[in-house]
Design a protein around this nucleic acid. Structure first.
Lengths: 243, 243
DNA sequence: TCAAGTACACTTGTATACAAGTATTATAAT
DNA sequence: ATTATAATACTTGTATACAAGTGTACTTGA
């Protein structure tokens, strides 16, 4: 069967990570992919047993996921929130918010160095595709955006990104994994979009930036939405999460 | 001597909190007030001994403060970052960013209920001043802004606020404590600013909103800057923190 | 005096143990 | 049959123990 691998998250990315980070990364992937349904109650003890670690790293992982808004810590167990359509839109909002903020900073300063860096990353992405390495491609894709955000040296904007990044990473990973098998031709478009983004930064063209930001995002979103919707089909009646 | 109280953070706010939260809250106050200098290296064991708890809650506290960008977790000890002028500006940026976002949402929906709620909080603030309760005033002040942010029901914007809130709370607490003793007349202005904010929401007047947002923030900032600068004087040569 | 190596103190990350509290289930009484 | 009470099987939060790694300081050699 397909999808029967033990871990969704690339294990090689976790070589230097703590057990807590490992659990968080894997759990995040399982939740975002829909493998763990929204509404599920996670028990520290159970997770510890499942992952073969003690409760300490599991606790740490749950704290991380709670900060990312993927689960909700309650008196009795952590309940999985998962991604609803509303949440997609919200992530979108925040990305637009911070990336436009970053762009406004960038139009005021020289960006030659950044453009160089981004071009390098784009080349890496091309190579990743050439060798059908979805993980590496995803890594570079996330790095691309992170590089832009880091370039303005704004610790609080970076803080927002740090909270958003793991979810984005998961989304991109899932999206790319799916495509590298079936919709290989999509990647030329993705690459083109990233080139547009670089051009926008180089020419300091606001409209172009917004445009490429949107297409980049929509691209990932649409693909994951399909993944996610199919999961929803399997587990009917999860319903809406009001707050 | 003045300022010789054991805890800076209002202990009554921590009745239901865990030891981890308590340590985080108090540590945050000490760092933001300048009592613990920027650059200091915090040891889990030492903190545990100081606060009379085990390492578990201390670890938890350090993770929280790291997520708030107040300390930096390194291989060997947690380094205190504290607040620089740059950081003030950054917090400012993010507050403007999210509050304007919220406002843009609010102009599209009815706000009667929210305005009622805010008016209630404003009344509470007036009472707090009448009885010289700086803690209560600070609480209501933070609640005021949180109420506005929560009203749009946006989990990711709320996430940003959750990361920003503790620092804001500390700043406001320090600011208000200082003023209630010396610059009592300031409070009429603070109240007026908040009324402006309510008016802006009621009339959906963007300019008024931005204006009141700025004065509200500047008000706190200026006061705390004085506090903080005086601390800086005492501990010369901390220097800049490059990243 | 200086360099290399070794021992030690201190660090984090993880495992385990325990206490206090909460939901659930079963039992008992009406 | 239904309600009240008690036992139990969970839960979280905290303390403690241990292992592995890192920096420091001291000793030893030249």
């Amino acid at each position: 069967m397909e999808g029967s691998k033990e871990f969704l998250y690339p294990v090689k990315w976790l070589s230097k990570a703590s057990a807590g980070d490992r659990v968080a990364s894997e759990l995040r992937m399982r939740i975002i992919s829909g493998m763990i349904e929204s509404g599920t109650i996670l028990s520290e003890n159970k997770l510890a047993a499942d992952f073969g670690v003690s409760r300490s790293p599991v606790r740490e992982a749950l704290k991380i996921l709670a900060a990312e808004n993927i689960i909700r810590l309650e008196r009795m167990g952590a309940v999985v929130i998962g991604l609803t359509e509303k949440k997609y839109a919200e992530i979108y909002d925040v990305r637009i918010l911070i990336e436009t903020f970053v762009f406004e900073r960038l139009v005021k300063v020289p960006t030659n160095e950044l453009v160089m860096e981004l071009s390098k990353i784009l080349e890496m992405m091309k190579v990743s595709i050439k060798y059908r390495d979805a993980d590496e491609f995803s890594y570079q894709d996330v790095l691309f955006h992170e590089t832009i955000i880091r370039s303005i040296n704004h610790s609080y904007i970076l803080m927002i990104w740090d909270n958003l990044k793991p979810v984005m990473e998961s989304l991109i990973l899932l999206s790319m994994h799916n495509r590298i098998k079936e919709k290989y031709e999509d990647f030329t478009r993705v690459l083109h979009n990233h080139q547009l983004y670089i051009d926008a930064i180089q020419t300091k063209d606001r409209e172009l930036m917004i445009k490429s930001l949107h297409v980049n995002f929509d691209d990932v979103q649409e693909e994951v939405e399909v993944l996610w919707m199919s999961q929803q089909m399997l587990s009917k009646g999860v319903g809406q999460e009001n707050d």
